[in-house]
Design a protein around this nucleic acid. Structure first.
Lengths: 111, 111
DNA sequence: ACGCTCCGTTCAGAAAAGGAACCTAAACCC
DNA sequence: GGGTTTAGGTTCCTTTTCTGAACGGAGCGT
């Protein structure tokens, strides 16, 4: 199965993964829920390379999860905000958060 | 940020992603919920390369999401079943499913 | 003995990610 | 008006990861 084929899979989980099933993509969406919206904010928050960040933002916009808006016209700057589709991702994010909170305590190793 | 560093991130979503935030890992877990448990079953279902499948199963076992059990001792065969930690992932999976169902209809392109 | 099933492992080539430097365009600073 | 800073990318090269396909081992049927 190729990555792109996921988007037409019979399983809705697989189709969801075709958009957010990436190392960084879901964390970008999380950051959006936490109020971040700008390239530099994501980059500092995630320490992801600018290269990858630009790519993932573009994909999220193409997928309709984020919207790219000019928040300043004089220096012409863009930011990224959640669409309805993106905001609707909240329950899934909460599910992941709850699981992480319960089953992934912050410790390096057992012992 | 490195992949491994996610497991000690302050954010529980990030810590969750350190385990299941991979192309295939979450789909393997989904298959487990759908009753699959054997290497060949996962491989046929996901069309993932055997190499990667073996690696992801090992990680899931190490993370305590799956358990590796011998289901046959004479030819000595193993399968993988959800632990409590793994079963507890159900709500997150449902969240992803709902979002995929609502926002990722099965069509190639918008018309 | 030969092939089949099942669970992997190994290897070469392709794709993706990482890291750092560079670019544009305007603003701000003196 | 020249140098620096801010913001949002892009480009390049190296390293890591993934893919595809073949191989291995251990039992089982015939």
């Amino acid at each position: 199965m190729k990555w792109d084929d996921l988007s037409t899979d019979w399983c809705p989980v697989a189709r969801a993964m075709s958009v957010i099933g990436d190392r960084w993509t879901l964390l970008i969406v999380r950051d959006c829920f936490l109020g971040k919206s700008r390239f530099e904010q994501f980059q500092k928050s995630l320490s992801v390379t600018r290269h990858i960040l630009a790519d993932r933002l573009k994909r999220l916009v193409e997928a309709g999860v984020l919207e790219r808006n000019a928040y300043s016209s004089r220096p012409l700057r863009y930011d990224y905000v959640l669409t309805d589709k993106g905001r609707d991702f909240a329950p899934a994010l909460v599910g992941l958060k709850d699981w992480g909170k319960k089953h992934m305590p912050v410790r390096k190793a057992a012992g």
